[in-house]
Design a protein around this nucleic acid. Sequence first.
DNA 1: TATATATGTCAATATGGCTGACGTAATTTT
DNA 2: AAAATTACGTCAGCCATATTGACATATATA
Lengths: 164, 164
Amino acid sequence: MPSSGLRWDIIELLFFAYRDFVGDADQELEAFGFGRAHHRVLHFVHRYPGLKVADLLDVLRITKQSLGRVLKQLLDEGYIVQKAGSNDRRQRLLFATPKGEALVGKLATLQTERLNRALRGIDPAGLETIRQFLRAMIDRDDPDKVLEAIFGLAPSGPKHKEQT
Amino acid sequence: MPSSGLRWDIIELLFFAYRDFVGDADQELEAFGFGRAHHRVLHFVHRYPGLKVADLLDVLRITKQSLGRVLKQLLDEGYIVQKAGSNDRRQRLLFATPKGEALVGKLATLQTERLNRALRGIDPAGLETIRQFLRAMIDRDDPDKVLEAIFGLAPSGPKHKEQT
DNA sequence: TATATATGTCAATATGGCTGACGTAATTTT
DNA sequence: AAAATTACGTCAGCCATATTGACATATATA
């Protein structure tokens, strides 16, 4: 009988699985002079077109200074464009350009290929179990705009407490 | 019909799930002045007692210079000890001390609590599906010593091609 | 003995986090 | 209309963790 009940095996599998999963993209990104940070930004801007800078900060949980560097590169090199918000013109709504779509699509293709290989032999019910597991692994207190979309929650009110 | 068939939702769930999963440990590690790198080293040394430095380099896929810094701290502060290999006395076999076991156990407890919450409502067959999925996500070409243990493979011969 | 291996270490560099401070434009509050 | 707040950008500097290249030491092997 396992005296501790700690899930060492799953902890370890998650480490290796995630390492190899992001490794696919890492290799490709190198060719563009980008890193994981760029991928994350591009991914969420692609998935949630018109995302505000503030939303992105909530999702990525980094500071605006850190985001600034990466975002500037993506803007300068034409992977993302900004448009002023129509209601609130202070906001910079972010959109992926065709060039940006192409890159994020290429990266998603690589990762999807790995996922498809891993899901071979797993039936739709099994896939739902995996989805359920992953969703339940995520913190749901103080969800950001993207998590609200994923979980289909009611918006939890304004955020953006001062961050300095 | 989805024209691309890209698994955007799973890609995204993996990002959030892993972020929150490692976030549990990150918080605790801060109190010790350690980072994720220390956790990874301590984890694998705990799980595979007597691991050589070279094995650890294979598993973590970092350079010995990067490992050196982190490992030195763990040794200096008494979380890990070295013993010379009995066959080959050049080797430094690594072992977690009771102090090291305590820390890695505390971290695994935090992560296990999240896993248990996430696994609530998933039956043993579902857990096996999740395990199968995670294992299948991992690269198995050129497996290191730890992956050989995980997958129950025959050793794939000597490694340690020159790394400079 | 000569060479190769396992490990450690010095020095320099890059990425991507962080904090603190400040500026500007636009919106909201008073 | 003036004041305060918000959304965003940016400068400067710090830290952790990764990198490459070079070299030293002890031990093993040919």
